[in-house]
Design a protein around this nucleic acid. Sequence first.
RNA 1: GGCGGCAUAGCCAAGUGGUAAGGCAACGGUCUGCAAAACCGUUAUUCUCCGGUUCGAAUCCGGAUGCCGCCUCCA
Length: 490
Amino acid sequence: MQLYNTLSRRKETFQPLRPGKAGLYACGVTVYDDCHLGHARSSVVFEVLVRFLRHRGIDVIWVRNFTDIDDKIIRRAQETGVPWLEVAERYIASFQEDMAALGIPPAQIEPRATAHIPEIIDLIRRLEDKGFAYHGQEDVYFRVRRFPGYGKLSGQSPEDLEAGARVEVDHHKEDPLDFVLWKGSKPGEPAWDSPWGPGRPGWHIECSAMSMRYLGETLDLHGGGQDLVFPHHENELAQSEAATGKPFSRFWLHHGLLTINQEKMSKSLGNFFTVKEVLAKFPAEVVRFFLINVHYRSPLDFSDAALAEAEAALLRLYTCLARIEEVLGRHPDVTLPGEYDYYPATLTLEDCSRLGSLAGRFANALDDDLNTAQALGYLFEAVRLLNRLLEEQSSEPGYLTILFNLHRGLKEMGAVLNLLQADPAAMVQSLRQKPQDLQLSAAEIEQLIAARAQARKDKDYAKADSIRKDLLEKGILLEDTPQGTIWRVK
RNA sequence: GGCGGCAUAGCCAAGUGGUAAGGCAACGGUCUGCAAAACCGUUAUUCUCCGGUUCGAAUCCGGAUGCCGCCUCCA
């Protein structure tokens, strides 16, 4: 598999350090508030990566941390009068709820910074022993200029950074670029004992300590949003390699940010939608589809219109699956899959070969730097051909076997993306009917449909059409099918 | 000011040297009592602009313009 490595600025072939086993450390959230859709993008991207690596036979350990102590949590605690630990607990629970609602399974290990204070202290000590850390007035700092590779991840040299002149002013630092490893506590702040007095870990050190604790001193994969490249990951890299003398992570993966009106979605800009807000309007699977319908390194612009488009696209996939299941359900007597010959009249030889190579091309797309957009494109191509095949309406065992196999194939490919696993008929129904948007109850609609059916039976098409028109004005579209009239929200 | 990224049809979007995937939307046809769904067809001779390399470039190089991210907490 090829993955774009931020460190080398190009795609590289990914091979785990230990054959068949890989570790991924993905930076998680600081738990001081509900997470927004940008955080969801991050988790979905790494979830899909993990699923695909496993699909490729690699046993992945996925670690995603919680930053459960930092200035924002303390501020939140002070503002609300809630103890900081309770703030952290509350938003860890909220994050886990959101992930579950999105259908994202938990990472194998979800470590919390405050549960790893001894590891953090130990790491800072190692840095101190090697001369990379020094104790200022209250805080312990990392001596940036002592680490020769500083800037190699973000492509900045210490000189460039200093010229930026936005580095924080702190007279206890030897150098403005130095960053905090251990932050001495002020009275009333949460604190842990350390060789440098009571305090708390700096932001970057927890990730170094926890990733090495669970995945070893050299990680296979380390990831996060593009906004973490500098300073967070640059600093993690520096302090980790300074301590161990070994490469910290072989691959650095950074996904694009979620935007609104082309601007980054963020707490500080106030232009965010929480996962809970979005899930109140759109089904989880629609949100997932939306998030992986673009390449993970591209920016992704959020809007209701874009979500609605994703919904329509997902409906197309499920409609096809539902049609196949409907056909197969009518032939329970046929043994499937079987060895039968069938030559589709509606497909060319090239179409058939495209369907035959579908799974391979799908995997190739994901092999190429996790190109989910292309992989989904192949699924839609298959749907187009399948829809054509469905027009044949044959009952021959060979025909049914082809449908059966492609149906199974779509489900299997969907599973890699964590899509298409719901019952298609039910999903089609629920995607079409959005009860929250309705002006009428389902029972009222059914009543009108019955009245229209009677009118149609009586050949009173004027009345039938007027019922349908009235419903359409209320946003309800009727469809007459062989199984009766169904409705959906337009 | 420094570092990095992006610019493909009405909209979203894949595509890193061989002549433009896919989705949404729209329009025409098949089907239908009429519709819808589904299918078929149409919608970029062209990939922001200007140069260059090449037999050949959306794809490589140089320049311009525009937008975004990072340089401060941030997925």
